[in-house]
Design a protein around this nucleic acid. Sequence first.
RNA 1: GCGGGUGUAGCUCAGCGGUAGAGCGUCACGUUGCCAACGUGAAUGUCGUGAGUUCGAAUCUCAUCACCCGCUCCA
Length: 488
Amino acid sequence: MAKLAKLDDIVSLCKRRGFIFQSSEIYGGLASCYDYGPLGVELKRNVREAWWKDVVRMRDDVVGLDCSILMHPLVWKSSGHADKFADLVTVCKKCNTRTRVDHLEDHADEHTEHVPVETALVDAADLDKKVCPNCKTVGKFSEPMAFKLMFETQMGANADDTMTLFLRPETAQGIFANFRNVMDSTRVKIPFGIAQIGKSFRNEVTTKAFIFRTREFEQAELEFFCKPGTDEEWYEHWKQRRFQWYIDHGIKAENLRFRDHDPDELAHYAKACVDVEYKFPFGSGDWQELEGIANRTDFDLRQHQRGMRTINDWHEAGGDLQKITLKDEDPEYFKGPLSYFDEQAKERYIPYVIEPSAGIDRSTLAFLVDAYDEEEVDGKTRNVLRFHPTIAPVKAAVFPLVKKHGMPEFATKIANDLKSSFSCFYDQKGAIGRRYRRQDEAGTPYCITVDGDSMEDNTVTLRERDSMEQTRVSADQLKSLLIEKLGL
RNA sequence: GCGGGUGUAGCUCAGCGGUAGAGCGUCACGUUGCCAACGUGAAUGUCGUGAGUUCGAAUCUCAUCACCCGCUCCA
């Protein structure tokens, strides 16, 4: 049982079988962007739907949402992204190590917090006194470089009259911005959650490792609103729930773990945060984050209440985010527009939020890597993707043993019948063994073969991907049998 | 952004100044009839891109793009 050792092998497999291609490849590629091919799009769609089923559809306390990617600029002022998501970075000329200006020694206390640009600029003015954390050299720094972590775009066709907008760096803020809409329209009662899957964009300083860290990526996020005081138990609930989801969909337990954030690593608003990590075969075989589960407290909703109070200032400043500061909170903020009235306790409060935030692309890669296997069969290597049936891009393939004697017609009929229930592939070309192996490499759990006897007794051969075992089953019972075996 | 490495057929790679190759895969026909079968035949290359050196560049030089590894960075 060999396992993929190098990322190159994964990239190669993905391209060869049509899972993932580099974006714009015919033009030499575009950094950090990837496309999902015919098998990849099915796989990714299944991952997405498995998440949605578990987090939304099977629960009574979570509803879905699909926000626009472009949102009002004040959303990002309130969330903190607009002025805190820009870091100044400098390079030590002595050892060539790059460090964030606010990470330089003497200022290392709050090293997970992004500092407003203005503050960073002031700090940057006297880099002469700073010490390189790597080589301890003093004051040999390059001119600080600013990184804009949000993508900008222009809204408005008239070039003279456009508004600068940001592509969202996370889907979560769209949920907070719709908190009241959802409450007003769905009769949900706390505790409840709002879930969303969608694209986000971040100008990461460096991208990494195939589709693991890309600048355009897809997130599956849940904001689960609960009463302050119950937040810790809900945090624990989602922590366990989300970990189990990966196991239930085929990830081997030994490749999965939790990593709690240290208190000094936490964002200033987070009370607790844990990562679900997968042992990817790249880097130095390192554990890498698939999902973060955070207790965000009441920070976000309170921030947006401040943002709502700032809207007039924004208009007066001509829409320039740099010229405005968020208004202070009302002393009675807990009675504000984004508060919740608890009918039973007869009290009003800003709910706490537990946020499981998963990377769809990352999980898709993890499912792909984890499913990959090679085994020796009669001295030859069999490549097989042992996908859990739920996420397998194709559930079943139907073959006529040979393409004559009415077998293709019989097999086509079966395939068409199965297609109405799940993804099914028909293939009549080439040797039967080759067709089996091709499906193994695509991760198809079952193959059905029609032979000479099928027309006589209405039975077909059902072949299992993992064991390669074959059983004879009645064509009439095939569909219900497969639905049962696939767990659909 | 720094350092190292790599870009040649769909994939893996050879070729390293003188006509662009192999294996696998793909396709067609025939045969076969349950695990990458056999035979015959076929298609497929801006040698990442652009300049330069040269009589001549996949090969040498420079630039550039992309990917990988390591720093760095990373709600």
